[in-house]
Amino acid sequence: MHALLSLDPAPPVGLASPREHIRQVALQMFVELGFHAVSLRQLAGAVGMQAGSLYNHIESKDALLFELIEAYESDLCQALPSGSAVERDPLKALNTFIRTHVTFTDAQRQRWLLARLEYRCLAPAHQAPILALRDQVAARLAYILKAGIEQHRFARVSVSAMVPCMLAMLNEISSWHSPGSTLSLGASIGLHTQMIHAVLQPQSTPPEQPMSPNLEQAASTGPR
């Protein structure tokens, strides 16, 4: 990971409120240094406050970590397709889920890293709602797969086995892909879409639309 450029007091970004500025700086410091390695005194110095003044804007360091992770997990869940869009076209919803999940985690790389690396630092009472949000993401994917199976668009796979495998695959793209990679993000999305399609391809009846789009076409609305 890149080292912090500076831990000296920095001005708020744009018109960010003091609370939002604290959240932005804490996100960077927690990812770069690790949650337990960052003291409230260090955080206060980085945002140009006295340590005691932080409590005017945050409840505690633990609560701040929970807020940051919860906001990320909630934003990701809300970005994913659900409801009538899935029932109208499960294949399109599947492609959208793949593209949205990967582009969101790539664009929110620091937030994704914090959620993955520092989740273990949360108290059990804070871990439970995070797991509930992750279960909602899994439920949205399961709903897409079940709709596709019921409409005979997908093969009759084990949804309970397929969902965690797919989510593990999609989450790991952000762990190795970086700007300047030989494979563009759009091409990577297309490649993973093809692999998932290959598993879901019905064996008896051809699908109503191609299950293996061109690598770039599968991510036509994603970044290059």
Rank of each mutant, 00 (worst) to 15 (best):
residue 214 N to H: 09
residue 140 R to I: 03
residue 72 Y to L: 05
residue 103 T to D: 12
residue 171 N to H: 11
residue 130 I to S: 09
residue 199 V to R: 05
residue 95 N to M: 10
residue 27 L to C: 10
residue 137 V to T: 14
residue 181 S to R: 08
residue 197 H to K: 01
residue 45 G to F: 11
residue 126 H to T: 00
residue 104 F to M: 06
residue 56 N to V: 08
residue 50 Q to M: 09
residue 13 V to W: 02
residue 223 P to Q: 10
residue 30 F to P: 03
residue 81 P to W: 14
residue 35 F to D: 05
residue 123 A to L: 13
residue 178 S to E: 14
residue 200 L to Q: 06
residue 210 P to A: 12
residue 124 P to A: 12
residue 156 R to W: 07
residue 195 M to E: 06
residue 184 S to T: 13
residue 66 F to Q: 02
residue 201 Q to P: 00
residue 35 F to Q: 05
residue 70 E to Q: 13
residue 133 L to R: 15
residue 25 V to K: 11
residue 145 L to N: 07
residue 105 T to N: 12
residue 100 T to V: 09
residue 20 E to A: 12
residue 58 I to G: 11
residue 3 A to F: 10
residue 38 V to N: 04
residue 7 L to H: 02
residue 195 M to P: 12
residue 24 Q to V: 01
residue 79 A to P: 00
residue 21 H to N: 09
residue 202 P to Q: 00
residue 197 H to N: 15
residue 207 P to K: 08
residue 138 A to N: 07
residue 194 Q to L: 11
residue 74 S to Y: 12
residue 148 G to L: 10
residue 25 V to E: 09
residue 196 I to W: 07
residue 118 E to C: 12
residue 110 Q to E: 15
residue 107 A to W: 08
residue 176 W to G: 04
residue 19 R to C: 05
residue 70 E to K: 13
residue 43 L to I: 04
residue 151 Q to P: 00
residue 79 A to H: 04
residue 17 S to A: 06
residue 31 V to I: 04
residue 190 G to P: 12
residue 153 R to N: 07
residue 136 Q to L: 13
residue 214 N to L: 09
residue 72 Y to Q: 11
residue 82 S to K: 09
residue 146 K to N: 13
residue 12 P to M: 07
residue 177 H to K: 04
residue 116 R to G: 00
residue 96 T to V: 09
residue 186 G to M: 04
residue 37 A to S: 14
residue 150 E to C: 06
residue 29 M to K: 06
residue 212 S to F: 15
residue 190 G to H: 06
residue 152 H to T: 11
residue 125 A to P: 01
residue 206 P to W: 08
residue 191 L to M: 14
